[in-house]
């Protein structure tokens, strides 16, 4: 079954009734890391779908290998949205996810990451893992865009495979960078706060 990226993006947007907002930032093809709160397996797909087509073509969502490689349909979908699949169960020392990401983005692509690690079932966002910090440290030139995903966990909650078509909202915030000599904990806290405050805007 041939299915184009545009069609997949359209279906994803209709199904999740998503509204897209850009606050103090604009869609751009420059290299970026979009980092968002993680509430549903649809997150990566939907952020990708919310980007305008020419930006979308350069974006690579980082997603869980164990979920997106199960079954032929998911595998096929993952190739359409150019997912960068990360093995969560087996993290090698010399092949850390951050190294893999840096290698894969090269000098043109952007990334969509979920620094909380696993999906969060609580209402409050989890603490950010340090991967985002190392990304910023190794590639200080890449813009970091906070993204807040609202209500998508109700569209497809954990452990469910049938989506319920409620309305969700995706908010892109202003770019941030790792400051010179900024401590890891401070940076991660600041990044998390930048995502959280988009909820109330």
């Amino acid at each position: 079954m041939p299915m184009t990226a545009a069609l997949l993006a359209f279906v994803a947007k209709v199904l999740s009734g998503s509204t897209v907002r850009w606050i103090d930032s604009q869609p751009d093809t420059c290299q970026r890391v979009y980092f968002a709160n993680h509430t549903s397996h649809l997150d990566a797909l939907l952020i990708w779908a919310s980007l305008p087509p020419h930006v979308r073509a350069l974006a690579r969502p980082v997603a869980a290998k164990d979920y997106w490689e199960r079954g032929a349909i998911r595998r096929h979908l993952a190739t359409i949205f150019h997912a960068l699949l990360i093995d969560r169960t087996e993290i090698k020392v010399h092949q850390s996810p951050v190294d893999l990401m840096i290698r894969e983005v090269g000098t043109t692509h952007s990334l969509i990451v979920f620094p909380e690690g696993g999906r969060n079932t609580e209402t409050e966002m989890g603490e950010f893992k340090s991967g985002l910090y190392y990304l910023g440290k190794k590639r200080p030139d890449i813009e970091m865009i906070p993204v807040y995903i609202d209500n998508l966990n109700r569209v497809l909650p954990r452990g469910e495979f049938l989506p319920v078509p409620l309305l969700s909202c995706i908010t892109f915030g202003p770019a941030m960078w790792l400051e010179h000599q900024e401590p890891k904990a401070d940076f991660l806290q600041r990044a998390r706060e930048n995502v959280r405050r988009l909820k109330d805007l």
């Binding site: 009734g17 209500n151 469910e160 319920v164 409620l166």
Partner: peptide, 26 residues
């Protein structure tokens, strides 16, 4: 109807346990 129901349920807090029932409803 489908769209109105979508708005109605989005507005209403539901819990994870309602997911399958909602799927049937929609």
């Amino acid at each position: 109807s489908f769209w109105a129901l979508r708005e109605f349920i989005t507005l209403t807090p539901t819990r994870l346990g309602d997911h399958r029932a909602l799927f049937w409803v929609f």
